[in-house]
Design a protein around this nucleic acid. Structure first.
Lengths: 201, 201
DNA sequence: GGTTTACACTAGCGCTTGCTTGGTTGATCT
DNA sequence: AGATCAACCAAGCAAGCGCTAGTGTAAACC
């Protein structure tokens, strides 16, 4: 009876689950709460998902896939200079935190609740995303835009960006674009202040 | 029967609880698991703590108090220059992450499981700690060591530092001192490379 | 020497949890 | 018209949960 495929109903349910997981945390969200939010009874939930863990995995997968897609797109559309590419990645990252906020918060906080199989599958996705970052940071280092240890710089940058979900207010005056700009300015002060004009190397 | 004071036994139990909370998460850690780890029966636990939530609060309080103490001490002992103070704060922060790792991981991940009263009490402690940071960052901005928006810079720095609990390996070659140095170098490239010699402003 | 105190035990209550079972519905396809 | 199928429901099981009540005991205190 249970489906593993990507029915549109399942997508919708996943979105609702993400919201509840953020509000209550995974463990505290009961299947009854999930069902009620979805307008069905708790038993019916298991027609769409094998078990509760699979809902969590679906939420995280959705968010990570979107982030990966958006980052790739941003890199294709931007200029060739190291500073432009760094800026594009930061902006793309912050924009997914805006649009897919729930899914990303769940991914950050509830990662360890995944069982071994799901964690294995999803960590490959996440690694692909982080590889994009490491490549862009390598370019920035080579271009002399940023200085320091390759590994540490990328961890610090990822930390600063991921941490935004804890304080960023989408209703506030600051846009993702602004944050991206400020971050790049902080770690690469020699960057030209207008991201439009490229600094070819 | 229940005690609220700071018996040495309670301190020891708090330390053990922190470890379990990190391994399993707060919700998944049952009072029976806690009791077993402590070598007593589940009922006896409630002689030391009013309820399960109080154990969580004790864990987080312990970690935050230590961090605050170490940061204040580091600021007193270091030189007057903005770069030295920035460096001292970063090192102190990373050192508590090393020594009190469990407590800090719990504080980061399980904060929302606190009830309103505990959260209110503990957020004051955390605010005091973050105030130290903001002051040091203000000094760095005034000294021209770092550039950018006051609010954003401090968030980015806190993010980079707090994120370290997710990847830092205490057994590895990098010491907290090294990380602190690298971070300061990244955001304030004009810093002298030897933290010992002060740059008076 | 009697009382108090700190710490532990046994036993279990009342409730919630994730998940299963067996069956019903209404739309779609042949 | 009959078969198929996704989607749902009602009912409930077995296990586990936080926590309480009442008791025992050895050390500390007056």
């Amino acid at each position: 009876m249970n489906v593993v495929n990507e029915s549109p109903r399942r997508k919708e349910l996943t979105r609702l689950a993400a919201q509840l997981f953020v509000q209550e945390g995974f463990d505290r969200t009961t299947v009854r709460m999930l069902a009620q939010e979805m307008g069905i009874k708790s038993g019916s939930l298991f027609h769409h998902f094998r078990d509760k863990q699979e809902i969590l995995a679906a939420v995280i997968e959705e968010g990570t896939q979107n982030a990966l897609m958006l980052a790739r797109q941003a890199l294709e559309e931007c200029g060739d200079s190291a500073s432009e590419r760094l800026h594009a990645m930061a902006r793309a990252h912050l924009e997914t935190l805006l649009t897919d906020r729930n899914a990303h918060v769940v991914a950050l906080y509830e990662w360890r609740r995944l069982d071994a199989a799901a964690r294995d599958h999803l960590s490959h996705l996440r690694d692909a995303y982080e590889e994009l970052w490491e490549r862009v940071i390598d370019e920035a280092l080579e271009a002399g835009l940023v200085h320091g240890d390759r590994f540490l710089v990328s961890r610090f940058v990822m930390g600063a960006l991921n941490w935004t979900v804890r304080w960023y207010d989408p209703e506030g005056p600051r846009k993702p674009e602004d944050l991206a700009h400020e971050l790049v300015a902080m770690i690469a002060p020699s960057t030209p202040s207008q991201p439009g004009q490229s600094t070819k190397v």
